[in-house]
Design a protein around this nucleic acid. Structure first.
Length: 426
DNA sequence: TCTGGGGTCCTAGGACCC
DNA sequence: TCTGGGGTCCTAGGACCC
């Protein structure tokens, strides 16, 4: 044991059953009880407490299929509350940034954090400290995996979820093979359904076997992504931390309907709403869109009625963030793909070829443009203050029969004083 | 009756050109 | 008249992630 070492160290911090943890934060009664959170429209189960997992409730399972187990076992059910989860996510990420600004926010409940600046021998304790601080400051429990590459830190995290301390460190492990041997190939980051089948067919069942497969074989028989994954398992970093939050390239807004929709008018209302949402989103990120895609489809699960799905893209002559422009184009595309006589289940729009709107004044910008800009800003500011869709367009409709279902909504809003938990003085 | 929503990246194959 | 090989660029769709 000699001098202090500073090898490359990446931590993956993952919030445990994140949406369930968020609901529990404001509802102590459901701690240590089985809890699930549903996807939009109360369609599928997308977050489960450990107690719910133990009952055999599966990730992504349709709610109606699990309903019997849920009722029988008194499982607490919540519709998703994304503004709450988004808010708590930001608090967690802010806390993590105190340990190092080199952070990649990978999803709403996960972040990669570069910890190379801490000495190797201290790293496990640093991991434990991060976990304690996040829990204390935000109330959210996490699991932490630390290793030399992103893929290995995912593996470490996978194991950490099953351990009591919640922290697993693979830095300077003498022999990693016995650990990798216990990780099934389908649990490796980057290996999905298709690749799992391919690997198993070729005798590769676990992470140790994938790590030891020859580079030439994998490149010849699979693709660069697989070879990168294998390299990363060997401890050679191929996937960099993306710390500068790159601007997104597309923006999708889509929803399933609570009730099937048959009329063009109702589709028009929904598409208008999605456009307004998406336009507001890209404006808040100073982006403009060059193309708009509209898609509609009937349910793929109901085999007795005919299936119809279609989409169409329109390229705009000039990239824009103007809601009115976007709605107008989307509705005209919708008219082209709409067919009578179908029961539509879902619709959506996508804005793509997004680019920076700042310093990007086009040749044709005019006083008219400035007027539109200030109108959009007024709409955004008002909606921010008084809630979404305070100001809207007439085509968005008023009576939205098709609008989403949220039967188990917790109604917690961290930006509203009415929902602050009350503390009684003793 | 009831099956989420939002992203990125890679690749094969077609179109086109020389 | 018939026939070639190779390069680039674009796009749709697939696979993967959470």
């Amino acid at each position: 044991m000699s001098s202090t070492q500073y090898t490359k160290k990446i931590a993956l911090i993952d919030c445990n059953s994140f949406y369930v943890s968020c609901e529990r934060l404001f509802n102590p009664k459901i701690r240590n009880k089985p809890v699930v959170v549903l996807s939009s429209n109360d369609g599928c189960i997308i977050s489960r407490s450990n107690e719910a997992k133990a009952l055999g409730i599966k990730m992504g399972e349709p709610y109606f299929k699990a309903r019997n187990i849920i009722i029988k076992n008194n499982v607490h059910v919540f519709s998703s509350n994304y503004s709450l989860y988004g808010d708590l996510s930001r608090r967690v990420m802010r806390t993590l940034k105190r340990f190092n600004s080199e952070i990649e926010i990978y999803s709403i409940d996960e972040a990669f954090l570069d910890l190379s600046n801490f000495p190797d021998e201290e790293i496990e304790n640093v991991g434990k400290e991060i976990r304690d601080v996040v829990l204390q400051w935000t109330g959210i429990p996490t699991s932490i995996g630390i290793a030399k590459t992103k893929t290995l830190s995912k593996v470490a995290n996978h194991i950490a979820k099953k351990t009591k301390s919640g922290v697993v460190n693979l830095i300077n492990i003498k022999d990693i093979d016995p650990i990798l041997e216990k990780v099934e190939v389908n649990d490796i980051w980057g290996v999905g359904k298709k690749l799992t089948n391919f690997f198993i067919k070729n005798g590769i069942h676990n992470a140790k076997q994938l790590k030891n497969v020859s580079n030439t074989w994998i490149k010849k028989n699979s693709n660069v992504l697989s070879s990168r994954t294998a390299m990363e398992l060997r401890g050679i970093s191929c996937i960099d931390l993306e710390t500068t939050s790159a601007k997104r390239k597309s923006c999708v807004v889509s929803r399933s309907f609570a009730k099937k929709v048959e009329k063009l008018q109702e589709l028009r209302e929904s598409i208008t709403g999605y456009c307004l949402n998406a336009a507001e989103k890209i404006r808040s990120e100073s982006l403009i869109a060059k193309s708009i895609t509209v898609f509609i489809r009937t349910s793929p699960f109901q085999n007795q009625s005919a299936y119809y799905a279609n989409s169409k893209t329109v390229d705009l002559p000039i990239a824009t963030d103007n809601s009115i422009e976007i709605v107008k184009n989307a509705l005209s595309v919708l008219k082209d793909i709409f067919k009578n006589g179908y029961r539509y289940q879902k619709a959506g729009i996508m804005l793509s070829y997004l680019s920076d709107s700042k310093g990007n004044k086009n040749l044709f910008s005019s006083i008219e443009d400035d007027k539109i800009k200030s109108l959009m800003k007024t709409i955004d500011d008002t909606n921010y203050k008084f809630g979404r869709s305070t100001l809207s367009l007439a085509s968005a409709g008023i009576n939205k029969k098709w609008n989403i279902k949220r039967q188990h909504y917790s109604k917690i809003d961290t930006s509203d004083f009415h929902y602050l938990p009350k503390i009684k003085a003793i």
